[in-house]
Computed example of a mutant assay.
Amino acid sequence: MATAACPFASQLTNTEKLPNRPETPQAPETTENTIFTQERIDASPAITSDNPTLIHSEYDLFRQSCPLAYTTNYSGYYLLTRYADIKSAALDSTTFISSVRAVIPSDPRGLRRPPLNFDAPAHTPYRTALDRTLKPARIARLSSPLQNHAERLLAPLLENGQGNICTEFASDYAAWVETEWLNLEPETAPKLARTASDWVDAWRRMDGEKTTYYSGMLYDIARGVLADRRENPRDLEEDPASSLLAEELEEVGLVGCIRQSLVVGMVAPPLMMGGICNYLSEHQGLQQQLREDLSLIPAAIEEFVRLFSPYRGFARTVSKDTVIHGHTVKPGIPISMTYSAANRDPTVFENPHEFILNRPSIAMHMGFGRGRHRCVGQPLAKL
Rank of each mutant, 00 (worst) to 15 (best):
residue 112 R to T: 12
residue 134 L to A: 01
residue 122 A to P: 11
residue 123 H to Y: 05
residue 134 L to R: 05
residue 120 A to Y: 05
residue 91 L to E: 01
residue 68 L to H: 00
residue 76 G to D: 10
residue 71 T to D: 08
residue 88 S to T: 15
residue 136 P to N: 01
residue 130 L to C: 03
residue 130 L to S: 02
residue 100 V to R: 13
residue 118 F to R: 06
residue 116 L to M: 12
residue 95 T to H: 01
residue 79 L to V: 15
residue 74 Y to K: 14
residue 65 S to T: 07
residue 93 S to M: 10
residue 120 A to Q: 06
residue 88 S to D: 14
residue 138 R to N: 14
residue 131 D to G: 15
residue 98 S to L: 03
residue 101 R to N: 12
residue 133 T to W: 00
residue 95 T to C: 11
residue 68 L to T: 02
residue 73 N to A: 13
residue 68 L to D: 03
residue 85 D to F: 06
residue 115 P to A: 13
residue 97 I to T: 14
residue 93 S to Q: 14
residue 108 P to E: 03
residue 131 D to Q: 13
residue 101 R to C: 13
residue 109 R to Y: 08
residue 108 P to D: 07
residue 98 S to A: 14
residue 100 V to T: 15
residue 69 A to Q: 09
residue 112 R to K: 15
residue 76 G to R: 10
residue 94 T to Y: 14
residue 85 D to W: 05
residue 69 A to E: 03
residue 98 S to M: 09
residue 70 Y to I: 09
residue 123 H to A: 00
residue 111 L to R: 11
residue 113 R to A: 11
residue 127 R to T: 04
residue 83 Y to I: 04
residue 100 V to P: 06
residue 86 I to L: 03
residue 67 P to Q: 13
residue 80 L to T: 01
residue 73 N to C: 05
residue 96 F to A: 01
residue 98 S to G: 05
residue 93 S to Y: 14
residue 96 F to K: 04
residue 107 D to N: 13
residue 114 P to N: 04
residue 97 I to N: 02
residue 101 R to F: 11
residue 68 L to S: 00
residue 109 R to T: 11
residue 101 R to G: 00
residue 90 A to R: 02
residue 133 T to Q: 08
residue 129 A to I: 05
residue 117 N to R: 03
residue 93 S to N: 14
residue 113 R to I: 08
residue 134 L to G: 04
residue 125 P to Q: 01
residue 65 S to E: 02
residue 119 D to M: 09
residue 104 I to A: 07
residue 75 S to W: 13
residue 93 S to V: 11
residue 79 L to N: 11
residue 85 D to C: 04
residue 69 A to P: 02
residue 120 A to V: 09
residue 129 A to T: 12
residue 111 L to A: 12
residue 88 S to Q: 15
residue 67 P to M: 07
residue 88 S to F: 14
residue 119 D to V: 11
residue 98 S to R: 07
residue 105 P to L: 01
residue 90 A to G: 00
residue 101 R to M: 10
residue 136 P to L: 11
residue 98 S to Y: 08
residue 102 A to K: 06
residue 131 D to C: 10
residue 76 G to Q: 09
residue 123 H to M: 08
residue 66 C to T: 04
residue 116 L to A: 11
residue 110 G to M: 09
residue 92 D to F: 08
residue 75 S to L: 10
residue 105 P to S: 07
residue 75 S to H: 15
residue 97 I to W: 06
residue 73 N to R: 07
residue 74 Y to I: 11
residue 95 T to R: 07
residue 86 I to H: 04
residue 83 Y to K: 07
residue 100 V to D: 15
residue 78 Y to E: 06
residue 125 P to K: 02
residue 99 S to M: 10
residue 104 I to V: 08
residue 91 L to W: 00
residue 118 F to W: 13
residue 75 S to T: 12
residue 68 L to K: 09
residue 79 L to E: 08
residue 85 D to V: 06
residue 122 A to H: 14
residue 75 S to D: 15
residue 67 P to H: 09
residue 92 D to Q: 08
residue 105 P to V: 06
residue 110 G to P: 05
residue 125 P to W: 03
